[in-house]
Amino acid sequence: MNDTIQTILSHVSVRKFEDKLLSQEQIQTIVKAAQAASTSSFVQAYTIVGVTDRIKKEKLAEIAGGQSYVADNGHFFVFCADLHRHELAADIEGGANISETLESTEKFMVATIDAALAAQNASVAAESMGLGICYIGGIRNNLPEVVKLLDTPNKVVPLFGLAVGYPAEKQATKPRLQFEHIYHENTYQDDSASKTQLHAYNKTISAYYHDRTNGRRADSWTEQIAKMMSKPVRMYMKDFLNKIGIPLK
């Protein structure tokens, strides 16, 4: 097993960082690694906003649900789906009419996939440098406020944050679903096999939480999912996208 694969398989989310900022060289390396990710048809439909202002970081931490590590880290990146850049490209090329394309569900999917691929490259790069990372989806709790805070134009959607820094503490690697449950060959496996695998995975996850919390927690994965998804969240998203010029046709 090479070092790259070992880095990937050793991933854990870090939620406590040392009080030490990343250097400009580290930031540039992480962003360049992000840019090296694949991008659909070379559209490069994402932007990364680095947030260094303490007041803005604290506000983002509040929006994310009081997650202190959004403010206290080595550097905070916000990955955005960006279709505004392509409006500028059309203007340069004589005002080409690309509005129908930019308002399509397909191009929004392209932008979100591009951003996610870039972020994962950034994460692997950071972890290979001995840093820790934590994805922050909580900024989507109030995207109108995030848009104001970061002054993003229409057709730019802040998707998630990425806290990066020197780990002050790390948890054990959390067990993932079994290989057989994730990887299906040629056809999707039937539900009975999937349920059998999920029952087995529940035991693994319950044991993990029991050990990690000294017995204070032992819930299963399906219990977590059923509880979480019984309470819809961020249901404003479609209206928000409409308001910033992405009506998803």
Rank of each mutant, 00 (worst) to 15 (best):
I5H: 10
L9M: 14
L9C: 08
H11P: 10
V12W: 05
S13V: 09
V14M: 12
F17C: 07
E25I: 08
Q26A: 09
Q28I: 05
Q28C: 07
V31Q: 04
K32A: 09
Q35R: 12
A36Y: 06
S38Q: 09
T39V: 15
S40K: 04
V49R: 04
G50I: 12
G50A: 13
V51F: 00
D53A: 06
R54S: 13
R54P: 09
K56T: 07
G65V: 03
S68C: 02
A71P: 01
N73R: 11
H75A: 15
V78F: 01
C80V: 11
A81P: 01
A81T: 03
L83V: 03
R85W: 10
A90I: 14
E93H: 14
G94H: 04
A96L: 12
A96I: 12
A96T: 08
N97G: 10
E100K: 14
T101H: 06
T101F: 11
T101E: 12
E103W: 06
K107M: 12
M109T: 06
V110S: 00
A111V: 06
E127P: 13
M129K: 04
M129R: 04
G132N: 02
Y135H: 05
Y135N: 00
G137H: 13
G138I: 10
R140D: 04
L143I: 11
E145N: 02
V147C: 05
L150I: 07
D151T: 09
D151F: 06
T152Y: 08
K155A: 05
L159D: 00
L159M: 11
G165Y: 00
P175Q: 07
N186T: 13
N186C: 03
Y188R: 11
Q189P: 05
Q189S: 05
D190H: 13
D191L: 13
D191K: 11
S192N: 10
A193M: 15
S194R: 13
K203Q: 15
S206T: 10
Y208S: 06
D211K: 04
R212T: 15
T213N: 09
G215C: 07
R217Q: 10
W221C: 08
A226Y: 11
M229N: 12
M229P: 01
M229Q: 09
P232Y: 11
V233D: 14
R234M: 09
M237W: 14
K238A: 07
F240G: 02
K243L: 08
K243T: 11
I244F: 09
